[in-house]
Simulated scan of single mutants.
Amino acid sequence: MGAGLSSVVGSEGAGVGLGLGDLPEGCIAEVLRRLDPPDICRLVRLNKTFLDAGSSNFIWEEKLPTNYGYLVEKMLEGEEKAEEGSGAIIEKLGTFLKKDVYALLCRRNSFDGGNKEFWLEKSTGGICMRISSRALSITGIDDRRYWNYIPTKESSFGVFAYLLQIWWLEVRGEIEFSFPQGTYSLYFRLHLGKPSRRRGRRNYITDNIHGWDLKPVRFQLSTLDGQEMQSKAYLGEPGVWSYYHVGDFVVKPSDEVTHVRFSLLQIDCTHTKGGLCVDSVLIEPKGLRQDNIYCA
């Protein structure tokens, strides 16, 4: 019956409680390596033994993407360290624990002059990315009769492009990036009506909203390796930031750069349209986003 008890007898005959901290650190590390990063992060809070085991490099080496050296270069882009070259950067990474490298990649890392940001998604191991409206090619963007950039706290970039009125709407962008293997979804983050605040309460101005119920907006996506997708959607639900699904693309096992082009078009010149906010483009592992999605 003693085998079923929750205590064991010590070498001196006294009853000693057996806790999780008494397990060998190597055994704990082998268990942790089989878990997803969010589960590892929860378990290392149990005690010091779990914390030490959870810092083992071999655990986090398996969690890091194979191209993490490239990702760190992007993370350091614009900083003095980026000038050292990839070899020096990777060599310097050798002085860091792999869990620290992983943690750095999971934060939001800006590049391309602050107009783009990426982060490692913990549950899938894929990359999420946002591309600011300032990094997009927008017809008429420099003419204030058509477009304005509006400062806001509702965008991670602190600004969005606001359309007053235009006949020909064309928003295009592209990204060259080494994504880890997987299937990725691409979205435009849009808002009908100009967001505002009055007496501390959020509101939105509807005066310029027009033309979106007459013809759908056309979305396009293509990659350099021949993947192509098209979709159409009527813009709806004013006052809410919504994600319009453009399409998906597949990244095969490779450290090569993936080249993606995408666009938003409404070029029917029989009517004007206006009152649209273009915040950003979002790329993330397929199936991750569940809220405020519009699909064709």
Results as ranks from 00 to 15, higher is better:
50 F>T: 04
111 F>V: 03
107 R>K: 15
193 G>H: 02
235 L>Q: 04
86 S>N: 08
223 T>D: 06
242 S>W: 03
152 T>S: 11
70 Y>A: 04
288 L>M: 09
93 L>H: 13
266 Q>C: 10
289 R>M: 10
57 N>G: 15
221 L>Y: 00
37 P>R: 03
218 R>Q: 13
259 H>F: 15
47 N>V: 14
211 G>Y: 00
46 L>F: 13
31 V>Y: 01
87 G>H: 15
180 P>L: 00
58 F>I: 07
108 R>D: 13
1 M>R: 08
189 R>S: 08
74 K>L: 02
74 K>N: 03
261 R>I: 02
134 R>E: 09
291 D>L: 08
23 L>I: 12
62 E>Y: 02
285 P>A: 11
110 S>H: 11
6 S>G: 08
207 D>W: 00
99 K>C: 07
189 R>Y: 09
241 W>R: 13
73 E>M: 10
166 I>T: 06
143 D>F: 04
15 G>I: 14
261 R>D: 03
190 L>Q: 11
166 I>R: 01
33 R>D: 06
141 I>Q: 11
220 Q>K: 09
32 L>C: 11
218 R>K: 08
2 G>E: 14
262 F>I: 07
157 F>H: 08
116 K>C: 09
9 V>N: 07
269 C>Q: 12
83 E>H: 15
183 T>M: 11
33 R>L: 03
282 L>W: 07
75 M>C: 10
187 Y>I: 05
84 E>Y: 15
164 L>F: 07
90 I>S: 14
135 A>Y: 05
134 R>N: 08
13 G>H: 12
38 P>V: 09
197 R>A: 06
175 I>E: 15
172 R>Y: 14
48 K>S: 13
24 P>F: 00
72 V>Y: 01
26 G>N: 09
213 D>L: 03
52 D>M: 07
221 L>F: 00
16 V>A: 05
11 S>V: 13
166 I>M: 09
229 M>D: 11
277 C>R: 06
293 I>M: 12
162 Y>K: 09
289 R>K: 07
234 Y>I: 02
152 T>G: 09
229 M>H: 12
176 E>V: 14
2 G>C: 09
24 P>I: 05
212 W>T: 03
245 H>F: 12
177 F>G: 04
113 G>F: 10
285 P>H: 03
194 K>P: 00
235 L>Y: 05
103 A>F: 03
176 E>L: 14
85 G>M: 15
100 D>W: 02
284 E>A: 07
230 Q>E: 15
170 E>H: 11
223 T>F: 01
292 N>P: 02
41 C>N: 13
40 I>S: 04
262 F>Y: 14
237 E>C: 12
256 E>F: 08
268 D>R: 04
189 R>N: 15
23 L>C: 10
129 M>N: 01
195 P>Q: 06
78 G>F: 06
188 F>A: 10
63 K>P: 02
146 Y>T: 06
20 L>T: 13
159 V>W: 00
296 A>M: 12
8 V>A: 09
44 V>K: 08
116 K>N: 03
205 I>S: 12
291 D>W: 08
31 V>H: 01
39 D>R: 04
18 L>E: 07
105 L>A: 08
17 G>I: 14
